[in-house]
Design a binder for these strands. Structure first.
Lengths: 213, 213
DNA sequence: CTTGGATTTGAACGAGCGTTCAATTAGAGG
DNA sequence: CCTCTAATTGAACGCTCGTTCAAATCCAAG
């Protein structure tokens, strides 16, 4: 028999994955049929089931492997240092990782509701791991008195939304290079968490307390 | 005959609109059938066609009217003042308008690719009108020397992404009130565009020039 | 009550859906 | 060349899809 059923990690052939990613990113998971994916690969629909047990697993595979690749790259990239240094590294990493992966980002953020509950929970768990690292950096910055952040959870979500939003407009060969985008966004991120020295009177009391200690 | 065909603005009955919005927000446009929408209203599928010429028009109607309501509210809310005042007003308006409209926001950002090209262009045109107002505020701030913004277009997109991202996690009755969210995000927005007085040497020359004049 | 247009039903249409599977083809090892 | 297994085909299954439309129903005006 040919059926390779599903234990873990990359059960789906690369040709099938690429075709599915391309089509789902363009038309949406629900709007793409197994016959379309098969045609993109150059086979008949039935043969797809040698590579994936069903359509849902195909989507889950794409989303989970995207998140796992993100976390893996993150581990090898992240290091120590001051909160400001770590935040800059995180910001530049996020941009460099996501910009060349427009389709994966698009699918991973748009198709969450098409995941069955247990698959959804797993993808959300992986995403939380990533966001938690950013929040840890922000907390470190607050402790150091380097960041004026009133609510680290909300600031984390705000930063992630702002950075991930780049993928909605970035096009390769556009007006801005990846390096320039890194500079622009790092400037915005740095400002956003910055303690403003001459306006101490207007700072949140939590920040004043942190700076006093 | 009963068919009310389509010229402009709110051709679809409110019951049908609400049912469609609810279901599309939850399951996605492609995954929701006309029969499901009809069942949610309490009629048969065929009767839906007294309210909309087809499924596509139903989606377009929801998205266009959301954008038109946004722009209409904006016109009556926007006023003059300094760039900083206008930016604060815009920020608070954006949050107050969008937070009670989670479903509309979700649909308007997720279902763009399910719009036929001419409908897509119209929705994009309306969105650009809204974003252009924010960019105008940023430009005014740069001219006044009040904002340190290196690229007003990119900062506009970053701010919109950050603010609209609130709808992805906000739940009524959650940890934070709308008022508190306004405060937190206004603090972040203000910081993001702020001129940092003690780092004048690092400011873009355009800002230095503006502040010198 | 009767009339007559607006509204709704319920069935039908052709098409496409995800998935299965017996039959066929392909291709490496002996 | 033959064998044997893995891979692929192509047809079929039972459904559901968006949309249409004659027939039935509803309901205000006369």
């Amino acid at each position: 028999m040919g059926r390779k059923a599903g234990s873990h990690s990359e059960i789906t052939g690369p040709k099938v994955r690429e075709a599915a990613l391309r089509l789902i990113a363009r038309h949406g998971f629900a709007a793409v049929s197994m016959r379309q994916i098969a045609a993109e690969v150059g086979i008949q629909a039935g043969a797809l089931y040698n590579y994936t047990p069903d359509k849902q697993s195909l989507l889950f595979d794409l989303m989970r492997s995207h998140m796992e690749e993100l976390l893996e790259s993150r581990v090898t990239s992240a290091g120590g240092g001051s909160a400001l240094e770590r935040l800059e590294e995180f910001t530049r990493f996020h941009i460099r990782f996501h910009l060349p992966r427009g389709q994966q980002v698009f699918v991973s953020y748009m198709e969450l509701r098409n995941l069955e509950p247990e698959n959804f929970q797993e993808v959300e768990r992986l995403r939380r791991l990533y966001e938690d690292e950013l929040e840890g950096i922000l907390r470190q910055g607050v402790e150091e008195g380097a960041f004026a952040v009133a609510d680290t959870k909300i600031t984390t979500l705000a930063l992630i939304a702002m950075l991930t939003g780049i993928s909605n407009w970035y096009r390769e060969g556009g007006r801005l290079s990846v390096g320039r985008i890194e500079e622009l966004y790092w400037a915005m991120v740095r400002n956003m968490v910055a303690v403003l020295p001459i306006e101490g009177a207007e700072l949140p009391t939590s920040v004043l307390a942190a700076r006093a200690s």
